[in-house]
Design a protein around this nucleic acid. Structure first.
Lengths: 201, 201
DNA sequence: ATTTGTTTTAATCATTTGTTTAAATCGAGA
DNA sequence: TCTCGATTTAAACAAATGATTAAAACAAAT
């Protein structure tokens, strides 16, 4: 049974690929059409305009990025160090399969804050108060902001800075996946060390 | 004595501003000309093409970014924890004055690896072996790769993810500078905690 | 087989965009 | 003042680009 995908779906996938790779401004609608194996007019027939197609793609990508964290972070029943572990695991896995996802999202966000303000309104997350409470109760020496920024930074930064890291020779190209796989395990330990209270002298 | 800047300089500054803000693809040469208060043709008169002007800007920006780290990291006479302190200090200062520098560089790098391969060849850094040696001698429990990625990540990530951080309400807009100023002091402490050897049970 | 609505194609449009050209203006030196 | 090269302006060009149109092909229902 030959499962054939619709033209609309083919266009979405092509748009996904090209937009994520090159960003909105550098993407040509003709290239998307070609990648989808269809006609340029089909793109406008199905999606109305380049921008509307872009919104479609960004909405999905943003959901991807947020849903790897939100539900875990806001669950009151998961202890905080368990959360870090799960998020480190989930995110690294997600980013290994979508390497240019974070840079794409963060760059387009910085260029088009309006678009993301709209999309965020649809996808509200409420993790902060929960983590705040958990941090206070466990009495560790770090703020929510720093905890989240450090955790996400450690996970995402290697992917964002990948070209720089490779070009500097710090990590070999074929070792990169291994590099982040290993970090995946270490990050929760690092965060634990960071958040631990100073021993009294 | 009225210090007036040359047209060439005015164009460079305008290009700097617009390119850094919007990236190469989204930048219109006409906008640069307007921002510089000159004619569109002047841009080609002085720099030949949009791309050559872009290379000019990128070369300077990349040098900026690398020179805040390179000379310190490769100096054998500075102990490693002092290096972290200095780099955290320097970089935060630099990025506070050039907030979109890291996202600009990393994004253009990912889009145009060839250009950066050329530029990097001009600006070779040799920090890695030095730090490797220092790490081995101090016998800490972390690799050079992880140390560098964690340090740079902690410093740069807040700037890269600024729109997301603000939009999430994690940090208020008018508190952002304060937020990274404080992190500037904490990062060396965090790195120290991370790199410290595990106590034997 | 005919009709009807949907999907696809090929061609074209209007605008934008990087670049060029040719003439005008400026400024210093003879 | 005149000249000559450097700088600036206004206009135009060619290609690229997002979007549209009108007709053709297709598919399902009657």
């Amino acid at each position: 049974m030959m499962e054939s995908i619709s033209t609309e779906e083919k266009i979405i996938r092509a748009a996904d690929k090209i937009f994520t790779q090159k960003g909105y401004a550098a993407t040509r609608t003709r290239e998307i059409a070609e990648e989808a194996g269809t006609n340029l007019a089909l793109l406008n027939y199905y999606f109305g305009s380049k921008e509307k197609l872009f919104r479609n793609v960004v909405r999905e990508k943003l959901k991807m990025l947020l849903s790897a964290m939100g539900p875990i972070a806001s669950d009151e029943n998961i202890p905080i160090d368990q959360k870090i572990k799960m998020i480190s695991e989930n995110y690294t896995q997600l980013l290994l399969e979508n390497e240019d996802l974070p840079l794409f999202i963060l760059n387009e966000w910085s260029v088009n804050k309006k678009l993301f303000a709209d999309l965020i309104r649809e996808t509200r997350q409420h993790a902060e108060p929960v983590i705040e409470k958990q941090l206070r109760e466990s009495g560790v020496a770090i703020s929510v902001e720093d905890l989240i920024v450090n955790t996400l930074g450690m996970i995402m930064f290697p992917f964002i800075a990948k070209p720089m890291i490779l070009s500097s020779g710090l990590v070999q190209k074929d070792q990169f996946a291994m590099f982040v796989e290993k970090r995946k395990e270490k990050i929760p330990e690092w965060i634990k060390k960071i958040t631990v209270k100073q021993e009294p002298l």
